[in-house]
Design a protein around this nucleic acid. Structure first.
Length: 1206
RNA sequence: GCCGCGGUGGUGAAAUGGUAUACACGAGGGACUUAAAAUCCCUUGGAUGAAUAAUCCGUGCGAGUUCGAGUCUCGCCCGCGGCACCA
């Protein structure tokens, strides 16, 4: 008998497969390619690193190979290609270190990888091999980039980006791990550098929605969903006002000031639209509206006042309404491109609007004419606060002209003060907590600060110095919106110097500075709330500012605690409940009842009311409380209410006693215990009840209750007794109901003892922020609404009042697409001084990566390519002028974003027809989408997001016809080293697949890796385990001796026949679902069973080999040949199970008593229910159990069991 | 902190709400052998027990639903992975 010699077998069949071109995918132009349905199985192509493969790498490839082989045998035209993702840092770093061109290193590595892969016996169609560094390949990458550029999806940005100081390049958000470089672990710095950025955020929603239709593992979808990070909420605009409490109060202020003050009061009342009359159109229309308030200077102030006072007064008045102006802004007046003078308007708002206080500027008329002619053509909008009383008529006309020319509609549209009024917009996912917003925080980079500090500075620099004598100090001070500007600026400077990692370090305590002098107005309650600047607020998310709700946000809570800011709870857990237990002999105590003493009745009513107001859900069950209190009955009532840590129990009289008893019996925790009238008047036969009051609140109960309060009735004996017991322990929370007059709240509202005490124990002293959903409280019109309802209602309200609107935010950032490194695709852009960034015309693609002497990154934010003068300097394709090439290269993820399309074309074809990769829609539409994609989970938020984005773009420009590239996806679980760590050269724990193949065989490696455990789960490598699968293969090999030609057709053993068909079914299904471990175990069971037979039919042995062939292709081919077959086993059709054969004829009927197995009886599979039950009951063993028992129920489960409930 | 996944023999692990521990490794015993390796056979969750009689316990912990729970529900504990001042 021949021995199983894996070396011989493997070499033989690998050669055969190559010679026969067995795995060459049929081109769709051929008839064999057309007739078969397609199946595209794809592996994530590897980065050919210098280290070579370790045993973890092929795991995914083995799986796809098994699938590909089965699909082939099932009659599909299978595409199973392989290629190389060869651009990237490691090759470049290797090149720098060893002074070898990265291309050479890559070539070498690919060779090694390929030979390692070939030894495992894969079905790859190497005629379609691709390489991202091939100019023919990256030509298309560049072409696709240009399409994005043309659509505005690729743009240049100067925003601060992630800079890795060690790799000397910028990185995308996806390339970071905990604020560190994913590759080298260096801390990332934020640097403002010019970068190419892809607008992936435009596709955020599509990327998120697309996930729904994908047959991917939930974990991967989850990760992508998180990464995209959609948050639904609202934006809210808060008005910002300057607090100038002392303005104009001073008696020493000029009469004009007083005048103004009075007027402003008047103005705030006047909400009417401006009156317009035809003749006065100009100036009437140019009266100023501030948030609807008309500010008519002409009428109320008039001309001729001292300008500085007027100027300042006006400024303050504006500031009160949130309008901050720059004064002393100089504007260059140009005439035919030359500066001819400067012009200084009285106010400038946000570099957009110029305001003149009067129509008599300090410059001459001619100059004015020039100035305004110039300004007419500029971006500025002009506005005038004019008194025309003494104005030069000609100037008047001029103004009129300007106004008419620049504002076709009205002055207001040109100069909408409403627009420029200072406000602070925030994004929040919890608009429902708006009532609880007690302060606001802006990020250090926020516009508001820039704007206000500019305003302040202009004041400090010029106005205050020049006019020191003219302006009263107070006015000057009050005119500055930020009074502690210095402190604020110092803080901002410090924050900017921190690295991103420092800023986002969670362990770090939050810091911040209040912007003194300004306040925001909470739009729902008009409360003035402070504005802070703090670096825990990110400039990059939302609007860079937040509304702070410390009661319901952990971070805000922390901050508020530190800086002693108010915390206002507006949502409470809907779980909070109160159970009122009445011990009254008569029904409901809170209702009218003759029996209940007035004081208690009022008291309970009030208590219930208070608890209700605080948001407690009141349970007020009707107790079956008779004259003879029944504890058990009572307990049953209580059971319906789930008493937990959120429950407050109010126990009244006997109810209180029960509550205490219940607490001592049940080890449950509750929130608060309030005992009312714990002690009764001795009247009407209360003796029995009195006995109940001998309860004790011991330590155990105390520990399970957060707080206890007891009110004792006016019964002297019990009062004394109770006070002895509890007054010390309860810190005085023991109150006496001395007489009804005193304690009836209604009668004596001045009595504060009860309410105060109650307040004390019910106060929601938040120990931490409550971030969950619940019910709104202290929220005006939102009170009582559940979180979701409150969200809707407030959003509606915000929209109606134009304060805010529904908004969606994404965590996903645009993709920083340039790297300052050598080994990547050059970005095909030319920078021209005249024309800006110009696309390289398509006919000049590819822009080949030039040879360079030194690959070292420059570290200056430019790539090494910048040093190649004759490559960089080119003519502008648009104007022919001198221009420079873009020297940044693309990131590693560029090529992998579309490589799966490149496989659809054979290499030869691609070379012949220059653009076939992208133009052959027929092939793309035939093969796409990828049917099954396998790779590492680490790509979930990188490659897989980029590729989907890229594909969706290609869909939009009609290059591809499918919306998603990868229909089905499975991720490979890592193979860890035997020490439990990742396999790495660093740890010296790498196991090379070549060694395993040599020693144990390729098939053995394949079967073992699939048998180790669930495919997607990480497992530790265990070389000892290989012996099991090796034995299995040898068993199958040896089993050939038992395969008997004579025993054709079916087996003598019927059971074996059943097992065979069960195996066909299981293996087929398990391959499809990637449950290879159970498929193999099933094959082992079949083999073990066959081995026990003396002879087996040749048909069944054949089937076994076919089922095994995808897993162990070399062994299967060898055995197949040994059985006398001439053609490859992989040309055999995949077997189908016969459903008839699967059914067992005889089954083991399990008989249970109360779910426990008591007997097993062999019966025919088609036994009827009644028969089965009868047999079960007749069993001796069962009789033993059922004797003397009443049978309640008998359950029959077909093919399985009978369960007798007794 | 949030989101997701998991916790079953000595180990890797099976198990549509229906016989828990399939399959494999390891271990123990036996056969063959001068011996070893290889191979084959038997045993292998725990307790009581002479027992391959029987009973009880047993899938991280505690409750619940059910005739019946590893599986479903609720509350914890632990481990892994992802995200993380994301408002």
């Amino acid at each position: 008998m021949d021995k199983y010699n894996h070396k011989k077998i493997e070499q033989k069949w690998q050669k055969y497969w190559e010679k026969e071109k067995l795995y060459k995918t049929k081109d769709i132009s051929t008839s064999s390619g057309q007739n078969k349905p397609k199946y595209y199985v794809l592996d994530m192509f590897p980065y050919p690193s210098g280290e070579g493969l370790h045993v973890g790498h092929p795991k995914g490839y083995i799986a796809t190979d098994i699938l590909a082989r089965m699909k082939m045998m099932q009659g599909y035209n299978v595409l199973h290609p392989m290629g190389w993702d060869a651009f990237g840092l490691p090759a470049e770093n290797y090149a720098i270190k060893n002074k070898i061109h990265p291309r050479k290193a890559v070539e070498k590595n690919i060779k090694k990888f390929k030979s390692q892969l070939e030894k495992i016996g894969f079905t790859y169609d190497w005629s379609r091999e691709i390489n991202t560094t091939d100019p023919e390949f990256y030509k298309i990458t560049q072409w696709m980039f240009l399409q994005m550029f043309k659509k505005g999806l690729a743009y240049e940005s100067n925003e601060p980006v992630n800079w890795c100081p060690s790799c000397k390049t910028v990185l995308a958000n996806e390339d970071l791990e905990n604020g560190k470089c994913e590759r080298c672990g260096s801390k990332i710095e934020k640097k403002p550098l010019r970068q190419w950025v892809l607008k992936i955020t435009d596709y955020a929603d599509k990327l998120l929605k697309g996930l729904d239709d994908l047959d991917w593992e939930d974990s991967i979808k989850e990760m992508q969903g998180n990464w995209i990070g959609k948050s639904v909420g609202a934006t809210v605009k808060f008005q910002v006002i300057s607090k100038n409490k002392n303005v104009l109060k001073n008696n020493s202020m000029s009469e004009y000031g007083q005048n103004l003050s009075r007027n402003s009061a008047e103005l705030t009342r006047n909400y009417a639209e401006p009156q317009t009359t035809k003749s006065e159109l100009l100036y009437e229309n140019l009266t100023y509206k501030i948030r609807g308030i008309i500010f008519n200077v002409k009428k109320n102030i008039g001309l001729g006042h001292k300008e500085s006072v007027y100027h300042n007064a006006l400024k303050i008045e504006f500031a009160k309404h949130g309008l901050f102006f720059e004064s002393e802004k100089q504007i260059d007046i140009k005439y035919e491109g030359k500066k001819i003078g400067t012009y200084q308007p009285d106010f400038v708002i946000e570099n957009k609007v110029l305001i003149e206080l009067k129509a008599l500027p300090k410059i001459g008329r001619q100059q004015l004419n020039q100035a305004w002619t110039y300004l007419k053509g500029s971006d500025y909008k002009l506005a005038f606060l004019v008194n025309f009383g003494t104005a030069d008529l000609e100037i008047k006309r001029m103004i009129y002209d300007i106004a008419r020319n620049q504002n076709n509609n009205s002055a207001e549209s040109a100069f909408s003060l409403r627009e420029s009024a200072t406000s602070l917009e925030v994004f929040t996912t919890r608009p429902d907590t708006l009532f609880g917003c007690t302060y606001m925080v802006v990020s250090p980079e926020h516009e508001l600060i820039k704007k206000l500090s500019k305003f302040c500075h202009s004041e400090l620099d010029s106005e205050s110095q020049k006019n020191k004598n003219k302006i009263p100090d107070q006015v000057r001070d009050d005119a500055l919106p930020i009074r502690n500007l210095e402190e604020v600026e110092k803080y901002i400077k410090k924050a900017k110097n921190k690295s991103d990692l420092e800023r986002t370090d969670l362990a770090k305590e939050k810091t911040g500075v209040e912007l003194k002098g300004i306040k925001a107005i909470n739009p729902v309650n008009n409360e003035e709330i402070p504005i802070w600047v703090a670096d825990y607020v990110l400039a990059s998310y939302g609007t860079g500012a937040i509304m702070s709700v410390p009661a319901h946000d952990k971070r805000d809570f922390e901050f508020a605690k530190k800086y002693n800011l108010p915390i206002k709870q507006v949502t409470r857990s809907s779980e909070k409940k109160c159970l009122i237990i009445h011990g009254s002999p008569k029904k409901d105590m809170s209702r009218d009842s003759d029996y209940v003493p007035e004081n208690i009745k009022h008291w309970l009513g009030w208590l219930k009311n208070e608890l209700d107001k605080k948001g407690y859900k009141i349970h007020n069950p009707q107790m079956p409380m008779p004259w003879k209190p029944d504890y058990n009955k009572w307990k049953r009532q209580i059971k319906k209410i789930n008493i937990d840590e959120n429950t407050t129990i109010v126990g009244h009289s006997a109810g209180g006693a029960f509550a205490v008893r219940w607490l001592s019996e049940n080890k449950k925790k509750i929130d608060k215990l309030i005992l009312v009238a714990a002690g009764l008047q001795k009247e009407e036969g209360n003796e029995r009840l009195h006995k109940l009051y001998d309860f004790k609140i011991d330590k155990k109960i105390r520990n399970r209750v957060n707080d206890i309060i007891i009110f004792v009735s006016n019964d002297r004996d019990y009062r004394v007794q109770n006070s002895k017991i509890y007054s010390k322990e309860l810190n005085g929370r023991l109150m006496y109901l001395e007489n009804r007059k005193h304690f009836t709240i209604k009668d004596n509202p001045a009595n504060k003892e009860f309410p105060e005490l109650l307040d004390e124990i019910l106060r929601q002293d938040l120990k931490e922020a409550f971030t969950g959903d619940g019910v709104n409280i202290n929220s005006g019109f939102l009170d009582g609404l559940k979180t979701a309802e409150a969200k809707n209602k407030i959003t509606e309200w915000l929209e109606k009042n134009k304060i805010g609107k529904k908004a969606i935010n994404y965590k996903l950032r645009d993709w920083v697409f340039s790297r300052q490194r050598y080994w990547g695709e050059p970005i095909p852009i030319i920078h021209c001084k005249k024309c800006g960034a110009v696309a390289v015309p398509e006919k000049y693609l590819p822009v080949k990566l030039p040879e360079v002497k030194n690959y070292k990154p420059t570290g200056t934010g430019e790539s090494p390519l910048a040093n190649i003068k004759n490559w960089v300097n080119v003519k502008c394709p648009k104007c022919g002028g001198p221009a420079k090439r873009e020297t940044n290269t693309m990131p590693q993820w560029a090529g992998s974003s579309w490589y799966y399309l490149a496989y659809l074309i054979r290499k030869q074809e691609a070379k012949n027809k220059k653009q076939e990769y992208i133009l052959n829609k027929k092939k793309i539409n035939h093969w796409m989408p990828v049917d099954f994609y396998v790779g590492g989970a680490e790509h979930a938020t990188r490659h897989l997001i980029y590729a989907r984005f890229w594909h969706k773009f290609l869909y939009d420009i009609k290059v591809v016809g499918s919306k998603e590239p990868f229909k089905k996806l499975k991720h490979v679980g890592l193979i860890l080293a035997e020490d439990g760590r990742k396999m790495s050269k660093r740890w010296g724990n790498v196991i090379n697949p070549e060694d395993i193949v040599k020693k144990y065989g390729a098939d053995n490696l394949r079967v073992y890796e699939m048998f180790m455990g669930p495919f997607s789960q990480p497992v530790e490598w265990n070389t000892n385990g290989l012996i099991g699968t090796r034995r299995f293969l040898e068993k199958v090999y040896k089993l050939r001796m038992k395969a008997n030609n004579k025993a054709n057709g079916t087996n003598a053993n019927e059971q074996l026949e059943i097992l065979l068909h069960q195996t066909i079914k299981k293996v087929t299904e398990d391959i499809e679902s990637f449950d290879f471990n159970t498929a193999i175990s099933q094959l082992m069971i079949l083999t073990n069973t066959m081995e026990k037979e003396k002879t087996i039919s040749i048909t069944s042995y054949r089937l076994l080999i076919i089922l095994l062939s995808p897993f162990a292709p070399h062994t299967a081919e060898e055995l197949w040949e040994k059985l006398g077959n001439k053609k490859s086993i992989f040309l055999q059709p995949w077997p189908k199970h016969n459903p008839e054969f699967i059914k067992e004829k005889e089954i083991e009927l399990v008989i249970q008593i109360n779910g426990k197995v008591r007997d097993k009886i062999k019966v025919s599979a088609d036994i009827s229910e009644n028969e089965a039950k009868k047999i079960a009951l007749e069993s001796e063993k069962i009789k033993k159990w059922t004797k003397g028992e009443k049978i309640k129920k008998i359950i029959f489960v077909k093919d399985r069991l009978v369960n007798i409930a007794i």
